[in-house]
Design a protein around this nucleic acid. Structure first.
Lengths: 191, 191
DNA sequence: GTCTATACTTTGATAGAC
DNA sequence: GTCTATCAAAGTATAGAC
């Protein structure tokens, strides 16, 4: 008999995928046990607070991932390079449009109110970090603010439309279009 | 004693608002009765098929609304004028960012699979109608395709980001940015 | 077309054995 | 740390009176 023993760090991404696919309300305990292979006993062992605690930890985990791979580079590294890294990381994270943004999905219904602070912090930091990088790259502040907001919204919209149309290539084109547009505003050898 | 008697046509927008706010799974019968004031008896009278039938009729209703106010004008009327009408109607429909797109929200989780055909038809027609109008307005086909996809994705992303940030002005800026961008591609007195 | 009362299922959560 | 068994609450849906 094979028995798999998990640590919490292994469990989070597993459960996260279920919430991502089904949404907060759709992710029932029985669906989570069925799709992860973990029993209710195990799940409540890791998350005594139940669903709410699970989702909160998942949101925090997503936030940490983006902070490390996207936000911090934008805030700290060479801006043009960090922006290039962003397009690459975002494409990989969302599996070129096959995956949606869990935090974006939570934002759309009243699930938002449960995690309002974390959700707005996530989007706020993304927009601000991108804007900051653009300014450091030489883009005027006002233009940078517009481009940053447009990019984050565009990414979310591209994911949504790709899913709605059952056509992941929509996301690839969205990302390529945004990258080209942003690049055209970068001074020097950009355009 | 006041007793309100409804017709189905009055009930649909009422119930639609609950689905829009709570999502398909979040919109439980008791929440629907609580928020609409209609009892379960009335609801099952109008929708014998229960939740699934309600949501299907709501999706069809949204589709009809957009067909009449947005898609048909884009397909039929003076293209530049129809595009201008689109920005105006979309802003009004989504209450300048205070409301989200029910069909977009359905697209994000597995609710999509229940209504896959209607959802993809809605987005497909929107993108195609806009592209068609742009072509008729003199924009090259490839550019028009890109702009149309970008606009529909942008609108959805703007709604999502506005909600995530608790800041409806994001949607106003998104819409203004898209309109300006699209206009810049229109020949003649556009730019 | 409205409603309340009821049947039955699923849900979230707990207890306790291994 | 894993699991199964159990419970109260909430879920969908139905029946039938007005």
């Amino acid at each position: 008999m094979t028995r798999t023993v998990f640590e919490k760090a292994d469990v989070i991404p597993l459960v996260a995928e279920v919430f991502r696919e089904l949404g907060y309300e759709g992710a029932t305990m029985s669906k989570i046990t069925a799709r992860t292979g973990l029993s209710k006993g195990s799940l409540y062992h890791f998350f005594p607070g139940g669903k709410e605690e699970m989702a909160a930890e998942i949101v925090a985990d997503v936030e940490r991932w983006f902070a490390k791979r996207v936000f911090e580079p934008l805030e700290r590294d060479d801006p043009k390079e960090a922006i290039a890294v962003m397009w690459r990381e975002v494409d990989a994270y969302f599996r070129s449009g096959q995956r949606i943004c869990l935090i974006g999905a939570f934002a759309l219904d009243e699930t938002r109110d449960r995690f309002a602070a974390a959700i707005s912090r996530y989007f706020r930091r993304w927009v601000d970090a991108l804007q900051d990088a653009l300014v450091r790259a030489g883009v005027p502040r006002g233009t940078a603010a517009k481009l940053a907001e447009e990019s984050v919204a565009g990414i979310q919209g591209g994911l949504l439309l790709a899913r709605g149309l059952h056509d992941e290539s929509v996301f690839a084109r969205t990302l390529a279009g945004l990258e080209e547009r942003v690049s055209s505003y970068l001074p020097k050898p950009g355009r």
